[in-house]
Nucleic acid binder design. Structure first.
Lengths: 102, 102
DNA sequence: ACAAACGATAACAAATGTGTTATCATAAGA
DNA sequence: TCTTATGATAACACATTTGTTATCGTTTGT
């Protein structure tokens, strides 16, 4: 009994996150994607030795917006994402899903 | 004298679009990315024989939003894009840029 | 101890996306 | 010709992001 989410208790976060009745597969895929994406942004920024303020200057996206993005307190628009990724040497690509069960 | 943009005339759209003083390289990259992305979405949707209304039902994104997205009258949020791509069997991936001149 | 730089965040205005509902013009089919 | 399905779009309410400005607590270096 260590985690409380929406008034209910779970022993681990995974118990909640991987329960289809709590988090739908689509939602989960989305969150996993965003988590991975944000992780790479932070990694790339730090690898280049840039502060959020540096990246703000390079990208044209303001520091508070970058902070919100990196701490996943916003769902950025595609242009914002592109602006931030660009000076980090990255872009986005549309690719076929691994498990093509549609 | 065939195209008028912002009160100025250009013989071709490329004359305008590829002029750094009119459209910055960053802006151009952004527009090219979105154009390519949207093209693939439309292609994938039609390849599956889906109407915008079909895709709306599958993705949970409403038809007017899909129409705005496909006609590039909006800059979608990353979750909207993800919802639309998912039932089409695609996802987004972060990749290194081709011309790494940063 | 002090200064500087950092990420996070508050508060508010402005811009923009999305949902909702409905309709339009057009194309395709019966 | 009539019906149906399509993508586009209008109008409005609502939700959310982003910009703006400023500040906070923490860490780092002097």
């Amino acid at each position: 009994m260590s985690i409380n989410i929406n008034g209910e208790n779970y022993t681990t976060f995974s118990d909640y996150f991987n329960d289809d009745s709590k988090v739908s597969p689509a939602e989960r895929a989305q969150i996993e994607f965003e988590t991975q994406l944000i992780g790479k942004i932070i990694e790339a920024r730090e690898a280049k030795g840039l502060s959020q303020r540096d990246l703000a200057e390079l990208s044209g996206v303001k520091q508070p917006a970058i902070a919100r993005l990196e701490s996943m307190r916003s769902t950025p628009q595609i242009d914002t994402l592109f602006k931030v990724l660009s000076p980090l040497g990255y872009t986005l690509s549309i690719v076929p899903k691994e498990n093509m069960q549609q």
